[in-house]
Simulated assay, not measured.
Amino acid sequence: MRTPHRLLALTTGLLMAFSLTGCGGGDGESGSADGGTVDPVGTWGSTAAQAPNLTFTEDGNVTGTDGCNRLMGSWTAEGETIEFGEIASTLMACVDVDTWLSGAKTATVDGDTMVVRDEGGSEIGTLERGSGD
């Protein structure tokens, strides 16, 4: 059971973490042309209202939105696979918004398309590389 105080503490912690992760940045490229580790640094998806997107920083942080809730967490890359650490999310009620991105566990990059998979390895959606990187 969540009490108002616990929810307030969680929300405050998420907001503080969002403000700290906004300081990172980078100009990575998608994929790995030399067969090495994939580099997802930058923004994937649309920044339009109610659209999912993720921003990956060089220091291993990822922030974004599932179209309604704010998301934050960490990422690592092993070969061609991006693995997400625990992803924290706000818990807003979202009407007519598919919040598929909050179930992300891994991803791969093919050119300018990121394929996102859930815990079972099933594809749950794709994100295109943002043009504003």
Rank of each mutant, 00 (worst) to 15 (best):
M114A: 01
V116I: 12
E86F: 09
V97R: 00
G24W: 11
S30N: 11
A51Y: 02
I87P: 02
G45N: 09
L15V: 09
Q50H: 10
T57Y: 11
L101M: 10
L15S: 10
T126S: 06
L127G: 02
V115A: 06
F18L: 14
S89N: 00
T90S: 15
T11Y: 06
D98M: 00
E78D: 14
F56C: 12
C94M: 04
G22L: 12
G22E: 09
T47D: 09
E58H: 10
N53M: 04
C94E: 04
A49F: 03
D66G: 02
V41E: 15
S30W: 07
L7R: 06
E119Y: 01
S30E: 08
P40C: 12
I87E: 01
S74F: 08
A104L: 02
G120A: 10
V109E: 08
G13Y: 03
G13H: 05
P4E: 00
D118C: 00
E86N: 02
S19Q: 12
P4I: 09
V97F: 03
I124S: 00
T47S: 11
T12I: 09
R129V: 08
W100G: 01
D27E: 11
E83K: 14
S89V: 01
S46D: 11
S131G: 14
G28N: 12
F56Q: 10
L15T: 09
T108F: 02
S46C: 11
V97E: 00
V62G: 11
G121H: 07
V116L: 00
A104I: 00
T57Q: 13
T47M: 14
M92V: 02
D39Y: 09
L10E: 07
G22N: 12
S131E: 15
A33M: 07
G121P: 04
G28P: 11
G130R: 08
P40M: 11
G121T: 07
D112Q: 14
N69Q: 02
T113H: 09
E123T: 06
T81C: 08
G132Q: 13
G35H: 05
G45D: 06
G42D: 08
